[in-house]
Design a protein around this nucleic acid. Sequence first.
DNA 1: TCTGGGGTCCTAGGACCC
DNA 2: TCTGGGGTCCTAGGACCC
Length: 436
Amino acid sequence: MPQPRATAAPVYALVDCNNFYVSCERAFDPSIRTTPTVVLSNNDGCVIARSPEAKALGIGMAEPAFKREGFFRQHGVRVFSSNYALYGDMSRRVMDILGSFSPDMEVYSIDEAFLRLRPVTGRSLTDLACEMRRTVHQWTGIPVSVGLAPTKTLAKLANHWAKKHTASGVFDCAACADVDALLERIDVGEVWGIGRRYADKLHRLGVHTARQLKDRPDHWVQRRLTIKGLMTVKELRGQPCIPIEDAPPPHKSIMSSRSFGRPVTTWDEMLEAVSAYTARTAEKLRRQGSVASSVMVFIKTNHHKPEDPQYSATRTMQLPVASAHTPTLIKAAQTLLRAIFRTGYRYCKAGVMVAGLEREDSRQLSLLTLPPDPLLAQDPRQDALMETLDGINAKWGRDTVQYAATGLGKPWSMRQNHKSPRYTTSWNELPVVKMG
DNA sequence: TCTGGGGTCCTAGGACCC
DNA sequence: TCTGGGGTCCTAGGACCC
């Protein structure tokens, strides 16, 4: 048993929900607790979460679902469409609980958080981690694993180790007498910050394990993996380089894009889809309190179907005055789309991105636009209108009020043929408990 | 023979993460 | 019929400035 630490050196915990999306489905449907289960990406495209039983059947991450349909049926695999209303809400509950264990928390993704833990007299951090795990499971039904280490990169590895090799679901690097021996057993590609490309490159250079990477000289690492790679290596050596970000910095760009549920071929449908994505982008922009100074639109055909004629195009426009006003952005996006849209293609995807984001309260006015236009662009009525729109939609649900340009039927919208109810966020879809 | 030196800004491409 | 969506950062190279 590791002893309570006497020093003030920070210890990082990485808490990661096990098979998060599957665990969310299971929390509300006990009948699938031991059934092989998968969750698909948007548009029911590929597998993005697998239960242990599904993994054991050999179902891979990111496998296209349509190729596995027969297999799923044959093995009784339960299949779910992504239900982000549910996962987002469950995530918030888990994070609330974790936040009560440490004020220094970074919510790193929908299913992961880093915590900086302070040693408590008379109690080991492993013990504390076990309590976190118990509490989250008891209060939400979501199983989590915890890795403890002196750096975030090592905490990631410790978490990985906890999932694979412990029954407790908790692993503390400090409890390990020989960290080098452990790093020797970990493939370099499993290190946080080393993706597929770098892993291939490192293997070609004779670096196969986390230990070997850790022992390369700084200049060797920086030349091949850039400054970021060097930070990763220093963290493997136990030297913290990547701080906790407790307040996430505002986004520098915001995108909305979707694959279509079926190919889009007409101008009218494409215009509707791009307008709808723009409206969504504008909402996200306002939620962050930002305005955008440029708009980008892209459209593309399906490159998985080489027998179809292929086309893809992107176009960007600078706005004279940064804006988060939906009609202004829709107008810009429509102009861009008009410039790149070609008939005769079966489009599979489109998207809208805004960039050059500034805080709404400190935006630059245009030098070039003569009065009264700057006043018009700053019309306070625009802001008031958007506020009202967002308020109504927040209260009564998304798209209670929407722009006509974004379409009503949305025949191009994504497939979601296996969606579970929004158990926790919709009154009409609450789970029903039957008293025996 | 010999073609400065230092800086900024922008873009494209490539890598990573979940 | 059919292969996700949404981000960030770094580097190199070119344009341009004095």
